[in-house]
Design a binder for these strands. Structure first.
Length: 109
DNA sequence: AGTCTGACTGGAG
DNA sequence: TCTCCAGCCAGAC
């Protein structure tokens, strides 16, 4: 069933991210065999807010573990709190121990 | 069909 | 560790 658009594939993969874990736009793009389309993944997440079922977009960060999407959650600290609520430690808008909480769809899936 | 945009990435200074 | 630069691709107009 490849009738879905690129965005749909992104949403589906993001919904597979376990609680308390995070991944990067590039990792998702690569998992979809579109490594160079990391920006598109982020752009897709922008629509994730109105996507159904809801997508845990707060678990998707950039390759540096920065909360680059926090501004899109309505409140600058909402994304951070959602992650901390799942056990992810955030400091200065960045994930601490990124390596420990990073979820690579190519490896874990 | 052409142009613009962006929740990105990795390398260089 | 931080800032700056150029390359990337799918989607909206």
């Amino acid at each position: 069933m490849e009738s879905s658009s690129f965005y749909e594939h992104v949403y589906a993969l993001v919904r597979l991210i376990p609680e308390g874990r995070v991944t990067s736009y590039g990792a998702i793009a690569k998992a979809l065999d579109k490594e160079g389309a990391a920006r598109q993944v982020g752009y897709a997440m922008a629509n994730a807010g109105k996507a159904m079922p809801p997508v845990p977009a707060h678990r998707v960060l950039n390759s540096k573990g920065e909360l680059s999407a926090k501004a899109a959650f309505g409140h600058p600290t909402l994304m951070q709190q959602l992650l901390e609520n799942e056990g992810v430690v955030i400091e200065n808008d960045r994930v601490v121990n990124l390596k420990s909480v990073f979820w690579d769809p190519l490896t874990e899936l």
